[in-house]
């Protein structure tokens, strides 16, 4: 089995790759993990991971700057239904539109917009930065064996914008930051985490292992 973490110039993917390698090793999964900007490799991959840090529009531009990448993603993920994991801005890119600084378009796999977090409590800082627990909206194989709720494990968030899916059914989990903030979206073969599993210690490694085993 092959996993490709898409490199499109958005941040360092070395530590993400190491987290996937460790999760695979601990779960005793035999697979190859590649960090690549080659659409041909993505076209052959069994599982696809789209990371992303920074601004939505920059990430979209970065993705568009790799010839053929968006087309391959649409084909491989949307049509061939390969398991797909978006992380942070990679998750936000699954949305219809991003409204950070300017309006730019996402992949439109999860209908909805990515908008600024506006906590009702002015004492809450932006970015939403640090460790938060998850509130489960619907069961999902990626959360198998991961305790959620107020006494559950924590995930590491750092973001000022959040995806609000148009269909509430696309929300898998939220985090409480004054009001619920979308933490995980999912539908069919698609899943995305607003938090960083590769920085989320025990929860992160478990979630990555679950993704590597996932048969949607």
């Amino acid at each position: 089995m092959s996993v490709v973490i898409i490199d499109y110039g958005s941040g360092n993917l070395h530590s993400a790759a190491k987290a996937f390698e460790r999760a695979a090793r601990e779960a005793e999964l035999d697979l190859s993990i590649a960090v690549s900007s080659d659409p041909d490799l993505v076209a052959k991959a069994d599982r696809i991971v789209l990371p992303g840090v920074g601004a939505f529009a920059d990430c979209r531009r970065g993705l568009d700057a790799v010839p053929g990448m968006v087309e391959v993603l649409q084909r491989r993920v949307h049509e061939d239904k390969r398991p797909f994991l978006g992380i942070c801005v990679g998750m936000q890119l699954m949305a219809t539109r991003g409204l950070e600084h300017t309006v730019s378009y996402g992949l439109d796999w999860i209908h909805g917009d990515v908008k600024a977090i506006t906590p009702s409590d002015p004492g809450l800082k932006i970015p939403h930065m640090g460790w938060n627990t998850l509130t489960l909206a619907k069961p999902h194989p990626l959360l198998d064996g991961i305790p959620t709720g107020p006494d559950g494990l924590h995930a590491y968030f750092v973001h000022s914008y959040a995806l609000t899916p148009a269909h509430p059914d696309d929300v898998v989990a939220t985090a409480d930051y004054g009001s619920p903030v979308t933490a995980i979206v999912g539908r069919d073969n698609l899943v995305g985490t607003q938090f960083h599993p590769e920085k989320s210690q025990a929860l992160g490694l478990k979630l990555i292992a679950n993704f590597l085993r996932w048969r949607p």
Binding site: K18, A19, H196, K199, Q201
Partner: peptide
């Protein structure tokens, strides 16, 4: 930094 990031899955 690189060796730390490879071993520690935290910010």
């Amino acid at each position: 930094v690189q060796r730390t990031a490879e071993a520690c899955f935290m910010p």
